[in-house]
Amino acid sequence: MTTSETFILELTDQQLWTGIRNGDEQAYTLIFERYHRTLYNYGSKLSGNSAIVEDAVQEVFIDVWRLRSTLTENVTSVKFYLYRALRRRIHVASDKFPITEELTMLPDWEMPYTYANSETLLIQHESNSMISRRIQEVLSQLPERQIEVITLRYFDDFSVEEIAGIMGINEKSVRNLIYKAITSFRQTPQHFLVSVLILCLLVIF
């Protein structure tokens, strides 16, 4: 799935990585500038405590510089390396500060037996604003690990294989989490129907 575009980007990251290994502070600055925002974004899905996320992002970058001479020469993806490091950091930090939401390891979701009705239940003839609102609503209610997977897949553009590597689970589990999240979208219309029914009842009586 490597497009020519990602290939060029990879090369540049790679060049910067080599620069960092050689002590080039400019390369380091650029890597920070390129990734600290999306890393923070990802981190905030893992911890609701922004101070922990900020610290973790900082520490990931500080470590890169501190350990620059020992960094692997051919890191497959700098971005992957940073994300995986951030996830570990936040997990360690969250143990230190139990105030934050507990990061329980949920059992991997089993693939549902049937695909029945998934097509019909996801309403297709919707306006952009309706889809956008629905997505917002559903995502805000998803379990943490599903949100994490959706962020990595649809915002950070990691492959399923990379996500498995970042989260330390197998690819099948990643796919299941994605599937589970997507199928959540069909719940909302039912809520909507229920509220319409209630409204009708209210009007009748």
């Binding site: 600290h36 925002r37 999306t38 923070y40 974004n41 905030s44 899905k45 900020e54 952009n128 889809i131 956008s132 997505i135 917002q136 995502l139 949100i147 959706i150 962020t151 649809y154 915002f155 997507i182 979208f185």
Partner: peptide
């Protein structure tokens, strides 16, 4: 397409 785009937009909203 729209689901994919909006999911990306929504999950990318927590930037610093």
């Amino acid at each position: 397409r729209r689901y994919i785009i909006f999911m990306g937009e929504d999950t990318g909203k927590s930037q610093p």
